[in-house]
Nucleic acid binder design. Structure first.
Lengths: 341, 341
DNA sequence: TTGAAAGCGCTAACAC
DNA sequence: GTGTTAGCGCTTTCAA
């Protein structure tokens, strides 16, 4: 292994000079700098990460806490992870992967052992056990998600309340009077996962405000679950003409089920999804949707963290606006036969 | 920050004694051990990861190189990642997440800076640029995937040649004479991704051996792509009655397309997928499939790596057998009208 | 503009 | 069974 001392000897300078050339933290004469750089290349020197971290009190590693549960095995998680790793690398940081089931102790472990400099935490619940822990940790963190008590924490997320409301408004504007939210699996609500709960809130409030019926139901990922859920929904509420879907894996099956039940999309049933744009666009018909800007959220989470590491202040809460793109799956509500009313 | 010296002082012993209590690397009297453990708890001591890594030459971190490309944004990757992280934690290791597009330099970077002790590399290509690099790296690695020149490397994967062949055999046994492999997107083949190429090989060899027609076609992830690919396939080869699918995201759309084209599954068209079991089981009809044992592969990859770190020899190549589970999507080939032959 | 030297917090060889 | 001590490879203060 090549050490900084080897480079120093080769270049005929002190080890500290090599260090300063590499870090740029003090002025170096052009001659010395070039000599050192040549030696670095000649010897193939790579600074030892542990030594550097020990001396500088900075590991240049961020923790990423991600849910690896089955009810969350969805492509959008990969998009978040990709954005976070890519952005971290741009700021010369690496990413340590933690699963959510390590729990609060996992956060304490990596933070208090100085394995990482900062944390990105996903899959936030409204009353998240990790929130008080994060608050006490001696290092910055960013939550992707918005818990109930976010005091003293930095949160970034899509404004899911607005997302739920935006879907209702879109459908209500088209004349739909009875809507349903087809949500995530039950376990996600039971955990009080923030994005799901907030969407519910937005959906309810908007339905109330617009004076339309708003029914909510969770839905598991199997085809049969989709079939039965939709059947029950339409049996109990035959007037429903508008569906809001927040459940990526069931989108394909759902379209299929509606076809089987003889409901044309959008003529008989309008659909709006909350999902990644590419998912919405590769369906037939292409879905009207509120996009989940995973890249932007992930990228901004890392940038906030880097800013905090540099001592800057960052916004406590960033809720990205929920933009709806109307595509082919939603249209004017079917004409209601007023004589039967 | 609480250091080992603080604990030593509190317990009235030398720092090295604390270290030995923690590591168990030498005998300690019960009395001393308990006193030290009490001090550790009382002070909330956590060993500093960098200091430990620097002194012991072990970071206790594994690198995981995973593809975060769009053509790979599939749940099975999450399953691999989950298994790898979970198993690593069981052996007291953490996982550093690298994206495949860091390339060979990324591997050198984390290895030569001693950021990690060992590497798990996924998404292997037949002629993978990283293979020669891994061979020269001063630390163990395990490939999930099987490149052409695997000399001196440790590889673990499903036996995809056998998987492709197993699907053909299953369908041929049922009397099907014309088969097609509906594969991954073109880019995956262009990169010569190992699992896709080897499946192709197995499919071809088995078709040849069984004397049946075996047509192959890539397929993108959009609904339209599936529709056009299948249409073209059936136009060019109207005799095809058996389909092998190796493309998780299109499974739903494919079933839909076949229905639209008036082909009942399995009566008119038998289907066998190469995918995770849960995906196969949540379709209607439930799919006959060769499972991708992501948990087992990921778990075993980490265990091999841990063994190697401990100096043990491990098998150079582990190909897990391809087991086919017959479900509802495959059956006897439809009766052929011999008069038209 | 550069060098010397003191740590950073831990492990492990050596000594008793 | 336990303590002493010399590093691990780097950063950064202090001094020149």
């Amino acid at each position: 292994m090549v050490t900084i001392a080897d480079v120093a000897r080769h270049a005929g300078v002190a080890a500290s000079t090599v260090s300063y050339v590499l870090s740029g933290k003090r002025a170096i004469s052009t001659d010395t700098r070039e000599r050192v750089q040549r030696s670095v290349r000649a010897l193939g020197y790579r600074p030892n990460a542990s030594a550097r971290a020990l001396a500088s009190q900075r590991s240049n590693v961020l923790a990423l806490v991600i849910p690896l549960r089955t009810d969350m095995h969805v492509p959008v998680m990969m998009q978040f992870a990709a954005a976070i790793v890519t952005t971290a690398r741009r700021y010369d940081h690496d990413v340590l992967l933690l699963t959510a089931d390590e729990g609060p102790e996992g956060l304490e472990r990596v933070a208090q052992s100085s394995l990482v400099d900062a944390l990105v935490v996903m899959d936030i619940e409204l009353h998240d056990q990790r929130v008080p822990v994060l608050r006490e940790l001696p290092m910055p963190s960013v939550l992707i998600g918005y818990p109930d008590d976010a005091d003293g924490l930095t949160c970034i997320d899509l404004d899911f309340v607005a997302a739920g409301a935006r879907c209702v408004d879109h459908l209500a504007d088209l004349g739909h009077r009875s809507l349903a939210l087809l949500g995530t699996p039950t376990t996600v609500y039971e955990r009080q996962t923030a994005f799901a709960q907030r969407t519910l809130t937005g959906f309810e409030e908007a339905a109330e405000r617009r004076g339309v019926l708003g029914v909510e139901t969770p839905c598991e990922h199997t085809f049969d679950a989709v079939l039965h859920t939709v059947q029950r929904l339409l049996d109990n509420h035959p007037d429903i003409t508008g569906l809001v879907v927040q459940n990526e894996p069931i989108i394909g099956p759902l379209l299929d089920v509606l076809r089987r039940l003889g409901r044309r999309v959008p003529e008989d049933m309008s659909l709006v999804a909350i999902c990644a744009d590419d998912v919405a666009e590769r369906q037939v018909p292409r879905l009207s949707s509120v996009t989940i800007p995973a890249e932007r959220i992930g990228g901004q989470a890392v940038e906030s963290l880097i800013s905090k590491l540099e001592g800057a202040d960052v916004a406590a809460l960033t809720l990205l606006p929920a933009a709806l793109t109307a595509r082919e799956s939603s249209c004017q509500a079917p004409h209601r036969d007023l004589t039967t009313a």
